[in-house]
Design a protein around this nucleic acid. Structure first.
Length: 259
DNA sequence: ATTGTGGCCTGCCCGC
DNA sequence: TGCGGGCAGGCCACAA
């Protein structure tokens, strides 16, 4: 599913169209437009503007223009297609087939270029001038000290804290499980009970997990991934994995080495 | 303020 | 072969 890694891939393909001007907006699905915007409002605001750059904060992709900024969210099954092709063929929890009705939003550019979001489950969305003030610092940017301070101030379970986009932006369920498994920390630990040494270790593995999985090709390429099913054993030490709900999400962890 | 819960969306997969 | 129920999780509204 799209976590910050996949969204970063999307950002890189979107970057190809920087410098092109927008010829039109295709918004067949009103549900997909968030923040009370409409197809007409988007058309009026964006037509004739030029894509000047792209940015990403966590899982939010920002298309910067010389007019307003457009925010794209991909939910769990959204893919970005530039000129009909995406950087990712198949998403975890989504099939490899495509269906034209899954295209929920599109931008037409001068010269015939297109940018589209294909999202079978409609969990993503498009917003004009999104408010990014409530988003935490991007997971690849947060420093060890900030991570330690954030954890110290919370009584939420460690994993729930990591998933909260207000604290750190970009970590989804798979990444959270993988980095905690790598760091040897129990996802159910109370965040403030994580000591300085453990917080430092988590910071190391947070960065390492994201950069490594980005190089491998996606958030589903972690070492724990093969064991994300009932009855599986830990790929590291062979212990039966624990399956729980933490932070409202299915959580796999190893009771032997995560503590 | 913080933390937890339930609902939304819909395709896919499993068991019958 | 078809069908129904469970499942997946990012995000948001809402409750305490």
């Amino acid at each position: 599913m799209p976590e910050m890694i996949e969204v970063e891939y999307y950002r890189r393909v979107a970057e190809r169209l920087v410098g092109h001007s927008l010829a039109g907006v295709v918004a067949p699905d009103a549900w997909y437009l968030k923040g009370n915007t409409t197809a007409r409002a988007l058309q009026v605001a964006l037509r004739g503007t030029t894509l000047t750059g792209t940015d990403r904060i966590g899982k939010l992709l920002l298309l910067e223009t010389d007019g307003p900024t457009v925010g794209l969210r991909f939910g769990m099954t959204g893919r970005l297609l530039v000129d009909g092709e995406g950087p990712i063929e198949k998403l975890e929890y989504a099939s490899g087939r495509g269906d034209p009705v899954w295209v929920r939003f599109g931008l037409r550019f001068e010269g015939g270029h297109t940018m589209q979001i294909e999202d079978p489950r409609r969990l993503g969305g498009v917003e004009l001038a999104p408010d990014v003030g409530h988003l935490g610092v991007d997971a690849l940017v947060i420093g060890a000290a900030a991570l330690r301070r954030g954890l110290a101030a919370s009584r939420a379970p460690l994993k729930a804290w990591l998933l909260d986009q207000h604290h750190v932006a970009g970590i989804g369920n798979l990444l959270a499980d993988e980095m905690l498994w790598q760091a040897g920390l129990d996802p159910a630990r109370v965040a403030s009970a994580v000591d300085d040494r453990e917080a430092k270790r988590l910071h190391v593995h947070l960065r390492r997990t994201i950069t490594q999985l980005m190089a491998r090709g996606g958030s589903h390429t972690g070492d724990l991934q093969v064991a994300r099913r009932r009855g599986a054993t830990c790929p590291r030490d062979g212990a039966p994995l624990q399956r729980r709900t933490i932070g409202g999400r299915t959580t796999y962890s190893c009771p032997a080495h995560q503590c």
